[in-house]
Design a protein around this nucleic acid. Structure first.
Lengths: 220, 220
DNA sequence: CCTCTTATTATCTATGTGATATTATCATTT
DNA sequence: AAATGATAATATCACATAGATAATAAGAGG
């Protein structure tokens, strides 16, 4: 939630300005840590937003990133000076006639934005904001673009590993894909297809009240 | 070929600085047109290069794009004030131990660079330059990254259309994929798989000394 | 009308995928 | 110590998709 103009009392994505001697990705990682108290395993680039009029204060070029984090780290949020950060559930409905609705919600807050689908190039769909509600700047557009890109990416087995730590169970990997793509797959088939991308370690999970799961590593 | 320091007499990718009131993609399209006399159908984003020390004159952040252009437009190059631009054939060999060799060549000039593969995240491989030869700045790294990303993307049928005009023959589409991925596929199988992504028009190619080919359009 | 060339379709076979059933291994309960 | 419940992991069937080869179609040019 922004405390100052422009877009006072509007919700905004975490972010900030580049400091000397850091790369853009380092900056994004620093900002997300400062503002949410969560440090993701890795960041996936979404795109550059450079329309001159996107910030009324002046010309600001934003590079957007997304990430998947573990369920546990969700609760870390707001632990530090990140008290003003919130998690939102996300629903994105692409209707007919190229119009799309973005809904963000949690226990207290409901946000809504309307966008139109502009074009799809190289797997990335771009949107134009029709009504951004109480979302600051063009952040509704960034969220829609990021979500679309994320689902696109996760369709390929080659990328879902990057959302998990080095060693993982195949079930965890499957859940990452299911969560992102909003699908459910049969474990037997998932394992068969994923097997060429992973190598097994000799470690197992422990003490879970059921058969322990072997830990795997990304191949290569 | 650069005429001024830094990297005088080194070869560099076409590029330039953002002007007021243009987006980064518009800038890239303007620069490529100015410097090569070729205007691509569309640009595919490769990534951001923001290491503080990549330009000795100061901190410069570059956004890289690639494109595929038609064979005819190759000959337009240098027609205008783009006299210092050249086409290069590209060969990229990933050896063992994560070391990769980049070769650029045309009739007169041979360029070579050595890189090490650093990591692969979200389908994009990042490289570190060991020896950039007579390539300016970190452009060897950008080329290697772009080529890797391009091949990654072209593996999906969903994206290869963006390299062609609105109406195209299936053979042309096939050649795009073959060129990028450096593979050859059987026409019968390619047609079967691509069919769900295209719709046929009622137009045909003409006067080619053989059966005319139906023109297709990207579906949706 | 024959030939050359590329476009397009048909079909055989091998390989991969979705679905279901079965077995394995732990912690906990009885 | 045996039964139970939970998740992990494997086996296998029917079916769909992909690779390969062959056949057919439709132009231009001699």
């Amino acid at each position: 939630m922004r405390g100052a103009h422009p877009f006072k009392d509007h919700w905004a994505l975490p972010g900030g300005f580049l400091k000397p001697n850091e790369t853009i990705e380092e900056c994004a990682l620093r900002e997300i840590t400062e503002e949410t108290n969560v440090t993701p395993v890795s960041l996936m680039p979404v795109g550059v937003f450079s329309e001159p009029e996107r910030d009324p204060r002046g010309w600001v070029i934003s590079n957007a990133y997304t990430s998947i984090i573990s369920e546990e780290s969700i609760n870390q949020i707001g632990g530090n000076d990140a008290s003003d950060a919130r998690w939102f559930g996300i629903r994105f409905e692409k209707g007919d006639s190229g119009e799309a609705q973005l809904f963000l919600s949690n226990g207290e807050i409901q946000l809504r934005a309307t966008l139109t689908e502009e074009s799809t190039k190289f797997g990335k769909t771009s949107f134009r904001i029709k009504d951004s509600g109480t979302l600051a700047f063009d952040h509704a557009k960034i969220i829609a673009t990021a979500l679309t890109a994320l689902r696109q990416e996760a369709g390929s087995f080659a990328t879902i590993f990057d959302f998990l730590p080095e060693k993982f169970t195949l079930t965890a990997l499957q859940k990452v894909q299911e969560a992102i793509m909003d699908i459910s797959v049969l474990p037997a088939n998932f394992r068969r297809k994923i097997s060429e991308y992973v190598v097994e370690t000799d470690e197992y999970t422990q003490g879970a009240g059921h058969r322990p799961a072997k830990l795997y590593r990304k191949k290569l």
